[in-house]
Amino acid sequence: MAKFAATAQDAVAGIQDGATVLIGGFGNAGQPMELIDALMDCGATDLTVVNNNAGQADAGLALLIKERRVKKIICSFPRQSDSWHFDTAYRAGEIELELVPQGNLAERIRAAGAGIGGFFTPTGYGTMLAEGKETRMIDGKGYVLESPIYGDVALIKALTSDKKGNLVYRKTARNFGPIMAAAAKKSIVQVSGIVETGQLDPEVIVTPGIYVDTVVEIAPQAAEGEAH
């Protein structure tokens, strides 16, 4: 049953050193910036972070990396024009990188939430990202065995929650939210608004509340554009 936290700090309290943290967002769309800032403030370190990227500019995940709180990152696209904090940490040998093709990253997270112990995927077959992995020919096509990625915690951003923790998202900010919510032991969600139970149409709920542990309302900043 979803609980409601008063602040982002309360929501992330209890994240331990060494935790695997799944962080939603693709670029800045869907990135739970306030939850990441709260994670920064709570002091947890030695983290393994799972995100599509490795931080942008001087905010959010990039700052966690800058402060060397992330020992390992599992992502598909670390190198960007503004990934300078990751680049510095990586070149100094101060962060471990597990590079995963984007669809395999998503499917590995999905598999964790769905109780799948592993799966054969054609993506990456015959490439250096499949080196050392079990492969199999199935109906004449090559596949690579990939394993699930479980999280101790997921930090995600949605548009609206009801009092049951049912979530709807907004446009391409949905990205990793639904699968990360399912793949973590504890999923923490920041939303722009909370409505009474029954006010979300059951037909449009994307993440059922069963996957949601903690919800915190963070009013969207004016610069983020319209909330609805």
Partner: peptide, 14 residues
Amino acid sequence: AIPAVGGAMDLATG
């Protein structure tokens, strides 16, 4: 080079 693959391998495959 810092490697970055994104969706390139997925796009090529499907």
